[in-house]
Design a protein around this nucleic acid. Structure first.
Length: 477
RNA sequence: GGCCCGUUCGUCUAUCGGUUAGGACACCAGGUUUUCAACCUGGGAAGAGGGGUUCGACUCCCCUACGGGCUGCCA
């Protein structure tokens, strides 16, 4: 069962969130971030919220948002409430900016983008810090021109800002290395830097678990919490995922979108297990259920070094979860796999047949397509056809043996022991090994060389169908 | 350039000052075997480098190297 219900008061209930920007597919790294947030919240009876960071109107698309929701749904991560659109909160964000302006925590800066760019260019050229310090920070309002301005946070220039990060530990930043971040653009729209803080506060987020590419943003965001007098949430900056070569994961590594993993046929449960284990550990536990993960997951056990993707291990875990999954989960996975790959769905008859064969399929497959490949024998109807390897197993001699087999199968009890005895006897009569009979029989029953055991196939197919297929193969050629 | 983070077998990791540095995946060898897969047995395989602190460092501190992130009126 789940972890015992906590005795925490409602006010201290855990609230986490996943906040992707809808500019493309759901990145595998983002999926892991979402998983960590989900595990943390679900393991503690808290809430897991979703917020779409769509303040960049030029790059945000509804298609991307849909792709992200689809990805999370496939991964099995359910969120509480409706996804929040950050863009829709713009008025509220601006309100906060103006409040900080009124309280002196922010100021109007009239520097133009060209001016700032020129400054930075010169700084770079001369090897100086490119940190821009606005001359308007302490300007007398009487000198303000009638021109567009941005609202900047007035950050302290002395001392340091310390982040007590649940993963990274204590991280200190000297305040003179922090710039006065822009809260409102010159067109009055809020920036992400302001919006995240306001939204996280308004949504009651207690734990911010996100990629460590945001670690440098944390101190500046913390200043907003302070300026507004809000409680600072717990930060947990987790390392990014790297490609097998240790470099930042990019398209040249192959699969970066979660959907691609779905199309490769990994079981979602295996994906969750693998992703959770990537950068987080609970002793030597490698294979675990969702309930165990929820109970065990904790922030201090997250590693600080970036992890690389290892498809072999993912495959192995996926296989273990296929073995452990119940029939409904497997059949659902098959249906969704067929759907995303654009393959025709199974007919009711086929689905029922496949379900009856799962017992001898699940332990031999690492991915859903492997499951389907091995199920082919039961999905086909006569004439079943032959692939190259199967055809090669059938020659005149083996056809003769198959012909000899049918009458005996006709009288067999159709129990596994009995079928084994029949084949064993025929093999013994010819002074050959079971393999010599099993190969052609396999070809006859499945038309393929990748199948479950011949005995299981006969059991699943039943006497009539099995004998019909054997006869068909024995007579051909 | 500046700031921040990181570095244990090929990979993911355990270890939270004292271990023959453990496990998993992968790999190699052998076994089992009706294909694929699985399974069994065994094997090779690691603390980036250099300084400290300490009776004793993979564990704590410093430096270097390497890797990564940020350095936008993007998120």
């Amino acid at each position: 069962m789940n972890a015992a219900p906590s005795s925490q008061a409602p006010s201290s209930r855990v609230v986490t969130r996943f906040a992707p920007s809808p500019t493309g597919y759901l990145h595998i790294g983002g999926a892991r971030t979402a998983l960590f947030n989900w595990l943390y919240a679900r393991g503690r009876g808290g809430k897991f919220l979703l917020r779409i960071e769509d303040t960049d109107r030029a790059r945000s698309t509804v298609e991307a948002t849909e792709a992200i929701l689809r990805g999370l749904t496939w991964l099995g991560l359910d969120w509480d409430g409706a996804p929040v659109s950050q863009f829709e909160g713009a008025p509220r964000h601006a309100e906060v900016a103006h409040h900080m302006l009124a309280t002196g925590h922010a100021y109007k800066c009239f520097a133009t983008q060209d001016e700032i760019e020129a400054f930075r260019e010169a700084a770079r050229r001369e090897g100086r810090s490119t940190l821009y310090q606005s001359p308007w920070r302490d300007a007398d309002p009487a000198t303000h021109p009638d021109a567009p301005y941005v609202v900047r946070l007035k950050a302290p220039r002395d001392g340091e800002t310390v982040i007590e990060d649940a993963v990274q530990g204590r991280v200190r930043f000297r305040n003179d290395t922090l710039d006065d971040m822009i809260c409102l653009r010159s067109d009055g729209t809020p920036t992400y830097m302001l919006a995240v803080v306001v939204d996280d506060h308004d949504m009651g987020v207690t734990h911010i678990i996100r990629g460590d590419d945001h670690l440098n943003n944390a101190p500046r965001q913390m200043l907003v919490y302070r300026a507004m007098g809000w409680d600072v949430p717990v930060f947990a900056h987790i390392p990014l995922i790297h490609g097998p070569d240790g470099k930042k994961l990019s398209k040249r590594h192959g699969a970066v979108g979660l959907e691609e993993y779905q199309k490769m046929g990994f079981l979602a449960a295996g994906m969750r297990n693998y992703l959770a284990r990537l950068g987080w550990s609970h002793g030597d536990d490698e294979f675990f259920t969702d309930d165990q993960a929820k109970e065990w997951f904790d922030l201090p056990a997250i590693g600080r070094a970036p992890a690389r993707l290892d498809f072999k291990k993912l495959e192995n875990l996926s296989g273990q979860h296929i073995s452990a999954a119940n029939d409904d989960v497997l059949m659902d996975a098959v249906a969704s796999y067929l759907a995303v790959t654009g393959a025709p769905a199974l007919s009711d008859v086929q689905a029922a047949a496949m379900r009856s064969a799962l017992y001898c399929l699940r332990d031999r497959s690492k991915t859903v397509p492997q499951l389907i490949e091995k199920a082919a024998f039961v999905l086909k109807s006569r004439p079943i056809g032959m692939d190259g390897k199967a055809a090669a197993a059938l020659d005149d001699v083996s056809r003769g043996i198959l012909r000899e087999l049918t009458p005996q199968l006709q009288n067999a009890s159709w129990q596994r022991d009995d079928l084994e005895a029949v084949l064993g006897n025929v093999a013994a009569a010819h002074g050959i090994g079971l393999g010599k009979i099993a190969q052609p029989l396999r070809a006859a029953l499945a038309g393929s060389s990748v199948t479950p055991s011949v005995f299981d196939m006969m059991l699943v197919l039943g006497r009539a169908e099995s004998i019909a297929r054997i006869n068909e193969a024995a007579l051909d050629g």
